[in-house]
Structure formats: C-alpha cells, structure tokens
Design a protein around this nucleic acid. Structure first.
Lengths: 158, 158
DNA sequence: ACAAGTATCTCGTTCACCGAGACAATACCG
DNA sequence: CGGTATTGTCTCGGTGAACGAGATACTTGT
C-alpha cells in the first residue's frame, strides 16, 4: 500500500467531498420525488440559464449522456412535476427548448443555498494566495479528470 | 442574480470538479461494462480494505443506500464479472463478506492512477500554508454537505 | 414542390432497484 | 439441551429509467 505520501490525504479528502456532495444531491432528489438524473438536468438547465443560453431537448440529453428516448422521458417527468416547461422554438419549430420553472429554482436554492453559503463563508477566511491555491488545485483536477483516456490507452482522439 | 461575490467562482469550480469526477467514474464504468453503482461499490470496498475492515453484504448495501434485494443483485453482478468474491464468514455463517479481487484493484488503479498522480503532482507545488487552505476548504465543504436537512427544508428526515 | 436533413417523440425491451417474504444460522431463555 | 426470537442473505414479482429502432414534424436546398 503506497499510501505514505502525505498528498494522498488531500486526494482522499477530495474524493470524500465528491461522495458527500453526491449524497447531498441524492437527498434533494429523494425528498422531492426525483431521480439523480433529474437533479443533474435541473443543474445543467440552471447553468445554461445563468450563461444566458437556451437549451433544447437535444442539448440537454447530450449533456447528460441520454439518448433521445430517455431525454423525452426525462423532460416529460420534469414537466409533469412542474419543474420545467417545454417551449416550441418559433424560429425552428422542430426544436423544443426546456425552461426551468421559477419554483424549481427556488426549491434548489432552499436546499443548496445553505451549503453554498457555508462554502462562501469558508472562502472569506482565506487570503489571495490561499484562494489561488484552492482555485489552482481544483482547476488542475478538473482538467486532469477531463483528459481521460488520452494517455492510458493508445487511442488517438480528435 | 446575486452572483457578484468572487467566492462563487470557486464554488462553481468545485461543482464542476465533482461533475468531471463523476463523468470520469462513469467512463470507467462504461468501459468495463459496469454501472455507476458498481463503481461506487468497488470504491467503498477498497476504502474498507485500506482501513483493514471486512465488509458484509449488508454493510455494503447500507453504504450505498440499497435494500437487500438490490444488494444481492449488485454482488451477483460484481461476482459474475470477477471483480469480487463472496466469502462466508466462518464465525457467523449467516454473513457473507465481500472481497475485492486483485484484478479489480489493478483495473481501478490503471484508470484512476493517472488522475491521482496528477493531483499529487499538483499538490507538491504548494507550500504548507496553501495545503492547509486546500485541506481546510475541502474539510469544511465535506462537513457542510454532511449536515444536511438540519436547517434547510421544512421536512424532518425519517 | 420534392428530397434530404434534423429534432423530437413513440413503441417495445432490458435491467437496476424496490417491497415482501422465504430460508438459514445464531442468540436468548427456560 | 429444546424452542422461539432475531439477524443476515437470498428469491420472487413488479416498477420505472434508459436503450435501440423507427415514426413523425419541421426546415433547407435544388
């Protein structure tokens, strides 16, 4: 067990954080009669809304790795629960854009708000250099997790 | 949109990291014909193995939030794929302990190894104070995500 | 107007997970 | 020791998310 390196403590800690955050989302899902996928969908939709982008059914499905049938079922479910609305795009009437309902946003805020607030509070306790370290580490890990299967296999992509 | 606070950048970054890490695990799962739950199970088993603890079928199911039927199905699947072995506990023969196969560990290492290696490499670039900041932030978030349903919703967990 | 292309939805199937309960082994109690 | 309660796992039947294939609706190019 080559776990001597002190850096491993933080690596395990990061993994523990992702597990806890996953469990936190799962609880939100279960409390509101949703599935993990539905929560992921709402988050993706809110991210897009924040960026000012409209999301079509197809985009949403692609972002979540679902096929068209699964995407339709997902949007049906969310719409039935009143979390999103289907809006036919008037420019291209084949398209259906999916918009989050305000109440779903509020619901999400009421669940994730305290956690986010706590995180912001924690971050306020650090100076610029410390913040840069946190930012740098997270950015590096995100990139490393994204470059995946680039090295391990011989597969040359793109 | 109260997103002015600069701390929010890091909060979104952390969320992006968890998304990427989730996608990374999902890719591992898919490449090896497994489901997300199977990967979570293997990780839980390896964590327990590292801590020197034996894991029974029941423990595993509880850790993953599955009922007994689902747990049996999970262990069946993992055993069929050769990732784990069922071992009857000789002390208490009602119990079935689940042991990870060495090849599953090796498989996991080959997938997650590069990512872990990159994280360790990143961490080596920081001094003690920066490491303490990273550790402190992650620990705080983990705890905040764990204290959940204590304040936020009206719903008192059962 | 017609063919080709694109976006979504419908249909039938598969499989993870659930609830209920069966079965096996142990612990408690006289 | 025998009997009953308890505990841990597995079996059975059912529900629903997601899949593959193909139908349907709209747009674009000629």
């Amino acid at each position: 067990m080559p776990d001597q390196e002190p850096e491993m403590e933080i690596v395990h800690l990061l993994r523990a954080v992702t597990v806890e955050l996953g469990a936190h989302s799962a609880r939100f899902a279960q409390r509101n009669g949703m599935h993990p996928t539905d929560v992921r969908a709402l988050i993706a939709l809110m991210d897009a809304a924040r960026a000012g982008e409209a999301v079509t059914a197809g985009h949403l499905g692609a972002a979540l790795g679902l096929n068209s049938a699964g995407t339709t079922a997902l949007v049906d479910r969310l719409e039935r629960a009143g979390h999103v609305r289907r809006v036919r795009d008037e420019r291209d009437r084949r398209r259906v854009t999916v918009e989050v309902d305000e109440r779903a946003v509020a619901l999400g805020r009421s669940h994730f708000g305290p956690l986010i607030g706590r995180a912001v509070e924690l971050l306020r306790g650090y100076d610029e250099r410390e913040l840069a370290a946190i930012r740098g580490f997270l950015t590096g890990v995100r990139e490393a997790a994204g470059d995946d299967g680039r090295e391990p296999d011989h597969n040359d992509r793109g």
